[in-house]
């Protein structure tokens, strides 16, 4: 199972969603945001090394934390040496070993964002209720469509109480709203998934529901009954 978590712009909570989804799905989180890595890092080989052919994807996975992570390096030289086209094979290699992979994709419309979408069997687009974030989500939906990756869910971070029907209609996928919450911020600071810090919280329940919905979509996708993303 390979799921890509993506966004049209940075700062909308994409990495938080990817990390929490990986925790819910018991998946390896791959930090594919080559230039703006944000998932926990560690010493040793990272995704830059994997994409430069200097390490295998499986040996770069760290299992010690609350979520298994394939971290990404932080150096400019590392980004420069990495071949973004090699990501698809790397993600498949992790899937063969661990079974489930959540790819934290870079924002934007460059090839690194597109290849990360290509690496997933389905995508989750994260956005916020702001004009810029929603415009970015629409662009990313188009990119996913061009690449041929179906859109499983839209996550609306820091959501208000309004209805999200129009957003679901515009993006062509059901919306999971995650309200702003202190426990989410606390979990982020502690480097933990929210279910470990606040198991009964609304945010934790939303991530559980999101994981369940995504699993259903991926099952349908593998049985061939899922249409391509959006109308």
């Amino acid at each position: 199972m390979r799921l890509t978590v993506t966004a049209g712009k940075g700062g909308v909570g994409k990495t938080t969603v990817a990390y929490n989804l990986a925790a819910e799905l018991d998946a390896v989180a791959v930090d594919a945001d080559l230039g703006m890595a944000d998932l926990p890092s560690a010493r040793g080989p990272d995704l830059h090394d994997v994409l430069a052919g200097r390490a295998s994807a499986v040996e770069a996975v760290r299992e010690g934390g609350p979520v298994a992570v394939l971290p990404c390096g932080r150096s400019l030289a590392g980004v420069r040496a990495a071949d973004p086209a090699a990501l698809v094979d790397a993600v498949r290699a992790v899937e063969r070993e661990y079974g489930r992979v959540v790819v934290d994709a870079p924002a934007g419309m460059h090839s690194d964002a597109a290849v990360a979408l290509l690496a997933g069997q389905a995508a989750v687009v994260v956005t916020r209720p702001s004009r810029a974030a929603l415009a970015g989500a629409l662009r990313t939906r188009e990119l996913a469509r061009a690449v041929g990756t179906p859109l499983a869910r839209v996550v609306l971070n820091r959501a208000g109480r309004d209805s999200h029907d129009r957003l679901a209609s515009a993006l062509g996928a059901p919306v999971t709203a995650v309200p702003e919450s202190d426990c989410l911020a606390e979990a982020h600071r502690a480097g933990q998934p929210v279910r470990a810090v606040a198991p009964g919280s609304t945010a934790s329940e939303r991530f559980t529901a999101l994981a369940s919905a995504v699993e259903t979509v991926l099952r349908e996708s593998s049985s061939g009954s899922l249409p391509q993303s959006g109308p």
């Binding site: 080559l34 086209a85 460059h110 090839s111 690449v147």
Partner: peptide, 23 residues
């Protein structure tokens, strides 16, 4: 089917820093 990763990089460009920007 889908485009290949190579085709995506060729058409959309790499997001990495330019060579001269890397010390």
């Amino acid at each position: 089917g889908s485009p290949t990763p190579e085709e995506l990089v060729r058409s959309l460009g790499e997001a990495g820093p330019p060579r001269d920007a890397v010390p």
